[in-house]
Amino acid sequence: MANLLVNIDLRAGLPTTSSIFALQAARSVASQLGATVVSMVITGPVALPDLERLARILGESGADRALVCADPLFSRPPFWSDQGRVLRLVTDTLRPRLVFLPAGTASAQLGPPLAVLLGATLVPHASCEISLSNDGEPRLHIARRTPRWDGIESTDALATIRPIVAILKAGRPELVSPGAIEAELELLPMPATTLPAIDVLSSREDAFDAALGAQNLFLLTTDLEVSRLNEMAAMPEGTAIIRNTPDAPASNLDVACPEKLFVLSEQSLPNPPPVVVAARGNIALCGPRKPPGTRFTGVYLRNDLSSPDKLIQDLAAIATGKIER
């Protein structure tokens, strides 16, 4: 495996938490298998000092190389008809066997056509880990929830015929020591495209975006005030709370792919979101038989809200990881 490509999603010129997590995951794989981590940034115009800062951040997070294509066209929200031309140019040159995309809505746009471009298998909600087989050969497990969310599927990326494009689930990046080596910065030209352009008529901040990098995600379908949940003193970093509203609908949860999902409802949901397995009791957990490296936990809570303090206490206990073995 010569090149491991990681697409980087930016907000305000900086990589998202999910992008840093994907980069660190790639670094871990590349260090064990002897590959080069190539980060790909497609962005609007960037000043030179900001580019250098970006290369430093990417280098500290594990990238050997930082390919940057900056053009005013990429100041708009990402679509395949725009960004695909750059990804085509890069993949034609690098021929990666493994591509990591960070959790988020941009990857939902770019992942499927990128996989088809490479003739690859697309693995959404992916996690990865290396193990050794009985004969000492490395195995690179790319795992995900099954489409019905009733189990785990795992593929050995080193044994498959096709390349793999993995949209990683959200995770908390490890702290890195500043001053590590800078990624080698390369500026790419703007390639031409044959696809007709998509016009962006208007855009605003996505209310769901904050939830996309969350490891602990609470979905409220109750009247419990968010302010009460925010009172949780022990709420760990990487936790997001959203309401199931038209502006941030639960249907986006399959893009968010948190490690732990908590759904709070006063009654059984008539159509639970696809990531929620209906519970037979007040609290249900999906898991925990998992292959190495997969840590998804889904919790579906039904509560009559008669004792919100107890509910908050329970949620805090779960969110702080006390249920982790």
Binding site: T121, D150, I161, I283, D314
Partner: peptide, 20 residues
Amino acid sequence: TEIESFADKVITAVSAADLM
């Protein structure tokens, strides 16, 4: 044929303490 599958086991509990 290239995919290994592992089924979930669903646990039900009446409280976080019970779950743990």
